[in-house]
């Protein structure tokens, strides 16, 4: 196994992968590999090219150029074979609104040519897995956003996929629903399911991903484990200062030398440092009176800010 070239063992292998539309380059020559059993993330703001990339991996969008192999096959010629082994959670729920909750899982299993008795059994098991078994005979429309999302995830699992693709799995969910989804995804990861997800939430990526790439304007701008990205592009701690409105311009130069790097945002000032408390003390020594100070560990949000000069969610 060790002597095999990496592109035959990787579940997904992409080199120079691009997607162009009439007047837009959605994905611009990106390279990445996803290995079996890992959780891999595409992180970036809206419009960075995450969804276009996911659609190409899911064999529902043809690459404009570059090479892509999924599960060792070519998405252009082997689409049906590849899709047979994928579980897909699209960005917007595409549940079958005309069918009941359990029928959604049953018919979806049938699309994969799964025998009826197996389909029925899996539908039942999966509804338990996502805690929707008491809604089995209900219509889909009245379900809450979190329930629909869980049903969509259950649907993506009916064929026991080798590779699970999730496009923004928790966007629009309340914190409680989000944690439930994370918990289920974490369990799948423990079971050895390879997961590829997109997100614009840094905390989500930190929770779920072994490895991720940060995308911005159709390109990959950084890649690595969440921890290594933070080590490389941020400091250990961050001191957040909030000042009275419009006080920021008056700070000019007064924070110099306190931290490795200073980021002035519209609503607050971020000081990147190895020791947040020491930096806070230094700020007060210089006679500055912030309205509030907060010392926290740095996150992928800080990485993104560093890499692109923009906050992730505007």
């Amino acid at each position: 196994m060790a002597i095999s070239p990496s592109d035959t063992t990787a579940l997904i292998h992409a080199r120079g992968l691009s997607k162009r539309f009439a007047n837009l380059v959605a994905v611009d020559a990106i390279d990445f590999d996803v290995d079996r059993g890992e959780a891999f993330g595409f992180l970036g703001p809206n419009g960075a090219g995450k969804t276009s990339t996911m659609r190409m991996i899911g064999c529902v969008s043809t690459p404009s150029s570059g090479t892509l192999s999924v599960l060792g096959m070519n998405p252009i010629t082997d689409g049906p074979r590849i899709r047979a082994r994928l579980g897909v959670v699209p960005q917007a729920d595409t549940l079958d609104m005309e069918l009941h909750v359990d029928e959604n899982l049953f018919t979806y299993a049938r699309y994969f040519d799964i025998p009826r008795d197996v389909a029925r059994r899996r539908a039942k098991e999966l509804l338990e897995f996502v805690q929707l078994n008491d809604r089995a005979k209900d219509e889909v429309e009245p379900l809450s956003g979190g329930m629909k999302r869980r049903l969509t995830i259950a649907r993506a699992l009916v064929n026991e996929p080798d590779l699970l693709l999730l496009d923004e799995p928790t966007t629009g969910l309340d914190p409680q629903a989000r944690h439930l989804v994370w918990d289920r995804l974490y369990r799948l990861k423990q079971q050895g399911v390879t997961i590829v997800l997109t997100s614009h939430y840094m905390d989500e990526a930190e929770q779920l991903c072994d490895r991720l790439v940060v995308m911005d304007k159709a390109k990959i701008v950084a890649s690595g484990s969440p921890r290594s990205l933070i080590d490389r592009y941020a400091t250990r701690e961050v001191l957040e200062l909030r000042f009275k409105i419009d006080a920021a311009p008056a700070l000019d130069g007064k924070l110099e030398g306190i931290a490795d790097r200073v980021e002035v945002l519209p609503d607050r000032v971020l000081l990147y440092t190895q020791d947040g408390d020491a930096a806070a003390a230094a700020v007060h020594e210089r006679g500055l009176q912030p309205e509030s100070t907060l010392v926290r560990r740095s996150t992928l949000e800080d990485v993104f800010l560093r890499l692109t000069g923009r906050s992730l969610i505007e």
Partner: peptide, 18 residues
């Protein structure tokens, strides 16, 4: 209705069906 409103085929095309 299935094509434009309930987007049924967006879900169906993620399966082996083309």
């Amino acid at each position: 209705y299935k094509l434009k409103y309930v987007k049924l085929y967006d879900a169906v095309l993620a399966t082996p069906l083309g």
